[in-house]
Amino acid sequence: MISIKGLSKHFTTREGALKAVDNLTLDIKEGEIFGVIGYSGAGKSTFVRLLNRLEEPTGGQIIIDQEDITAMNAKALRVARQDIGMVFQHFNLLWSRTVAENIAFPLEIAGYPKAKREQRVQELIRLVGLTGREDAYPSQLSGGQKQRVGIARALANEPKVLLCDEATSALDPETTDAILDLLVDINQKLGLTIILITHEMHVIRKICNQVAVMEAGKVVEQGDVLDVFLHPKQAVTKRFVAQVMGEDETDSYEQLVGAYKEGTLMRLQFVGETTNQALISQLAKTFPIDINILQGKITQTKHGAYGTLIVQLLGADDDLQRVVHYISEETSVDMEVIDDAH
């Protein structure tokens, strides 16, 4: 669907040349929600703006749906842009227009006749859940509602691709979740390919199929969201995974090891777990042991449960050994014995 080869963007700053995007190659499949994560300055925003040439590439090639975006002249690019929706961090709505007029704007640009325009605007307002707010001005809307207008506007011309540049970064956590649900809904209903830029791993975990981690203009790690969560390779990826998997620093264990000297201390890692969610009660019923949950963070996603639990197991030595064997052999939960008092 989208094929990016050797894409580069260099800026000349007072401090010298800056490679915001550096020889980047990626393939994105149709219907995928593709996340790009990185800290600020990693080049992810420049990257997404290169895709519709809001930023002119220094080098490389972008092909979207068999069309070479990089080779287009201004006129062809304008037409191609009508097939690429874009959602912005700060919404970028026209305050002088109502909700309905804002959504109608891309349709005016594409030359829809007026009657068809009104009908399409009504469909979109229903799709993003803004019924009844058609005649409100953006200044009368909440952040979440503004972003719904932004999304409706981006979808107006039935694009093949939706680019989301930090679409949820200006929103509170609850609103973020609602907007993400809307994006998943749109992805499923319309089969739209979504490219989503964010600095929050939570966003990637919640809705993306594929993720690319960017650092200093390059993709340092890329793959299935589950794989990246399970086996983060780069330091930057590990930091992002730790954002949602709970504290992953060893020094926080040392404190626990000192405080809980009895039994076995272990770390259980749930990665997209669906079958072993009831692990703790299962263990307690099956083995004559006590389980003490010391620390943990589990979150639910569409791929199952994610998170880490640190537990203390108390019981007879051979029972504890059987438990360790059981978890590692019979379940898909990742386990690590931190401290065995025996």
Partner: peptide, 28 residues
């Protein structure tokens, strides 16, 4: 807001459209 001009460009608007439908109404 430069972002609004950019949004119009991302929708494939011509410069004339940007002047008449974005810049002048927003600055009115």
């Amino acid at each position: 807001d430069k972002g609004v001009v950019e949004a119009a460009q991302a929708m494939g608007a011509k410069t004339r459209t940007i002047i008449l439908r974005v810049l002048l109404p927003e600055a009115m």
